Simulated scan of single mutants.
Amino acid sequence: MENALVSILIPTYNSALFIKDAVQSIREQTYTNWEIIIVDDASTDQTLDILKSIAAIDTRVQWTQLAQNSGTGVARNTALKQAKGRYIAFLDADDLWKPEKLQTQLDFMKSHAVPFTFSSYDCMNEKGKLLNVRVVPPQNLSYRQLFFCNYVGNLTGIYDSHFFGKVSILPNRKRQDWMHWLTILKKIKSAKAVPESLAIYRIRQNSISASKLDLVKHNFGVYKQFHGLSWISALACMSVFLCTQLFIKPFYIKKVAKVN
């Protein structure tokens, strides 16, 4: 594990407002043996110009563009095929990592002998203002817990490809991050979270998490299509999911006086 290469997969689509800051948060990591693989999903804004300028000053940054808009799942899988690192990590184009993120997680994985981990993360608004809100996942996360609620922030997850292989992402446009972590956790049954907050998630008005109705619809699709459940079983799972969202998950969202 010593100084192992980390492949960081970033999908972009019309991300000109945010992508430079996202990449810069990786370039400021205290752990420096990484590669960034950016796959642009046929952007129509200035994203490509920005990617070209970034790649020109840092050879660890690679980018390519899809011929047509195909969704983040396809973009991430395209990046995954190009990845050379032992460790696979994810960052969306509008989110940020804290400088110690990679080093802290890799040290945690080594000391706890775990092939997959994730962490707490803070929240900011669309303009980048910190909201003093921290999402703190369960310290020990079981597959059953994840089945009823996605506690893994996609911007925090890292897995060891020597243990899992390269885990393909389903090409769904919605909820494919949750299905990805379910696929991984099913193999090990439980996982440990790094207790520190290591990333910052940007809450945007057009994100799926901003629409509770869409969230319910797409999560039902996970139970019905990904898990292959009957309508009755999927509805039963959705009732547990909704109860979890209303009565359990709020306990994992903390107000913090000052974000570090």
Rank of each mutant, 00 (worst) to 15 (best):
K98W: 04
K98Q: 12
P99F: 01
P99Y: 07
E100S: 13
K101C: 13
K101Y: 14
L102N: 04
Q103M: 12
T104Y: 07
Q105K: 10
Q105T: 00
Q105R: 03
L106Q: 02
D107S: 13
D107P: 01
D107E: 15
F108E: 04
F108M: 10
M109C: 09
M109P: 01
K110T: 13
K110V: 11
S111M: 11
S111E: 14
S111R: 14
H112Y: 12
V114P: 00
P115L: 13
F116Q: 03
T117K: 07
T117S: 12
F118K: 01
F118G: 05
S119K: 02
S120M: 05
S120T: 11
Y121W: 13
Y121S: 08
Y121A: 04
D122R: 01
D122Q: 09
C123T: 07
C123W: 09
M124G: 06
M124D: 02
E126H: 09
E126S: 13
E126G: 07
G128D: 09
G128S: 08
K129I: 09
K129L: 11
L130C: 06
L130S: 10
L130N: 11
L131F: 05
N132K: 08
N132I: 06
V133T: 12
V133E: 11
V133C: 08
V133L: 14
R134D: 00
R134T: 08
R134S: 07
V135L: 09
V136L: 02
P137S: 05
P137W: 00
P137C: 04
P138Q: 07
P138D: 04
Q139T: 08
Q139N: 09
N140D: 06
L141K: 04
L141N: 03
L141H: 06
S142D: 06
S142F: 02
S142G: 11
Y143V: 13
Y143G: 00
R144E: 15
Q145H: 10
L146V: 03
L146P: 03
L146H: 08
F147V: 07
F147P: 01
F147Y: 15
F148V: 03
C149N: 14
C149R: 09
N150M: 01
Y151Q: 06
Y151N: 06
Y151L: 01
Y151M: 03
V152M: 03
V152S: 00
N154A: 15
N154D: 09
N154P: 00
L155F: 08
G157Q: 13
G157M: 12
I158C: 08
Y159R: 10
D160H: 12
D160V: 05
D160S: 10
D160Y: 10
D160K: 12
S161A: 15
S161I: 06
H162Y: 13
H162P: 00
F163Y: 15
F163E: 10
F163I: 12
F164W: 10
F164P: 09
G165R: 11
K166C: 05
K166M: 12
K166A: 09
V167E: 14
S168D: 15
S168H: 15
